[in-house]
């Protein structure tokens, strides 16, 4: 079997607040292979962004605490690395695209300065560049993202660009430096659909061209379906289901995944869509057993007491639900 590029093993993260400990991540497992595009789907507050921040080691300390688990990148545990090693990982190996391109770009520097810095620091890790090379690389990076008139854009400030343009700049920052893995946290959520479509196409094309891997974090199942090879569905700090994208969409197994799919209004308009009763649990006192059981139609006594493991139903389709325990044996 192939050695995965990045593997998150049994990750637990807690936040201490006035009321006590918020047990946000509750044993997250995920794997990404070289050149793979995976999606991490879940609703607001399910721990998607916390997972991302744990991988990049940017959780707010001392409020957040990783109490258990490993994050193995190319055979090394990121959680045990020294700050300088992590810095190198961030400069040359793993990069990120954030939801709001307005806050992830510094408003007082021009696009050229910011993009130039990214290219400069990444190159210090690989090979040295002079100013001219940085400029030509910046222009090339912007051109790649389909930006019209890149030379002019380099002299602009972020506020002078529209949301879609800013997100293109963020993508070119992330892609200009030959990183191996991109973590994109809701890269298109703040954009309109026509622009979202353009950005997703672009991201998909560039990632394939550069043979990068990408973790796409989003709440939109539709976006995941368009872009990824494999999907991880997350609920309340757990991965509840994972499968190849096509498998998952043709045959969702976990009650939560099914509920989520039923909740989305369809363009065909024939199906009545219905939501999932209740809301995401309070992380102070998360439900025992399966964290989804208070909202689940099929909940049994077993679900209330025991935390379900991932059951492989074949075809690389794993689901954390007792409904599929029998099927196995």
């Amino acid at each position: 079997m192939m050695v995965p590029l990045l593997e998150v093993k049994d990750l637990y993260v807690q936040f201490s607040v006035f009321e006590g400990e918020l047990k946000v991540l509750n044993g997250v497992n995920l794997k990404i292979n070289e050149g793979e595009k995976i999606g991490l789907v879940g609703e607001a507050g399910c721990g998607k962004t916390t997972t991302m921040k744990s991988i990049l080691r940017v959780l707010p300390t001392p409020v957040a605490r990783i109490s258990k688990g490993e994050i193995i990148y190319k055979g090394k545990n990121i959680l045990n690395m020294k700050p300088s090693e992590i810095q190198n990982i961030r400069r040359g190996e793993i990069t990120a695209i954030f939801q709001d391109p307005l806050t992830s770009l510094n408003p007082v520097f021009t696009i050229g300065q910011q993009l130039g810095d990214v290219i400069k620091y990444a190159s210090r890790y690989q090979d040295h560049l002079d100013k001219k090379e940085i400029f030509s690389k910046s222009v090339a990076a912007l051109k790649e993202t389909g930006m019209p008139d890149p030379e002019r854009i380099l002299n602009n400030y972020p506020v002078q660009l529209s949301g879609g343009m800013r997100q293109r700049v963020c993508i070119s920052e992330a892609l200009s430096t030959n990183h191996n893995l991109i973590i994109a946290d809701e890269p298109t959520t703040s954009l309109d659909v026509t622009i979202q479509d353009q950005i997703l196409r672009l991201l998909s094309k560039l990632v394939e061209k550069k043979k990068m891997s990408i973790i796409l974090i989003t709440h939109s199942l539709g976006v995941v379906r368009e872009l990824t090879d494999r999907v991880y569905v997350m609920y309340a700090g757990n991965i509840v289901e994972t499968a190849q994208t096509t498998t998952l969409f043709s045959n969702p197994l976990h009650p939560y995944t099914r509920g989520l799919m039923n909740a989305i209004p369809r363009l065909t308009g024939e199906r009545i869509f219905e939501g999932i009763e209740g809301r995401i649990p309070n992380y102070l006192y998360p439900p025992t057993g399966c964290r989804f059981h208070p909202r689940c139609k099929y909940s049994t006594k077993e679900c209330q007491e025991i935390f379900p493991l991932m059951y492989d139903t074949g075809n690389n389709h794993e689901v954390a639900c007792f409904l599929y325990k029998e099927e196995l044996n």
């Binding site: 659909v193 026509t194 979202q196 479509d197 353009q198 997703l200 939109s220 199942l221 539709g222 976006v223 379906r225 368009e226 969409f249 799919m261 989305i264 369809r266 363009l267 065909t268």
Partner: peptide
């Protein structure tokens, strides 16, 4: 038409 074609959807029928 452009708007409709850019909606991410879940199924083949859509």
């Amino acid at each position: 038409q452009m708007l409709l074609s850019s909606i991410p959807v879940l199924t083949k029928e859509e």
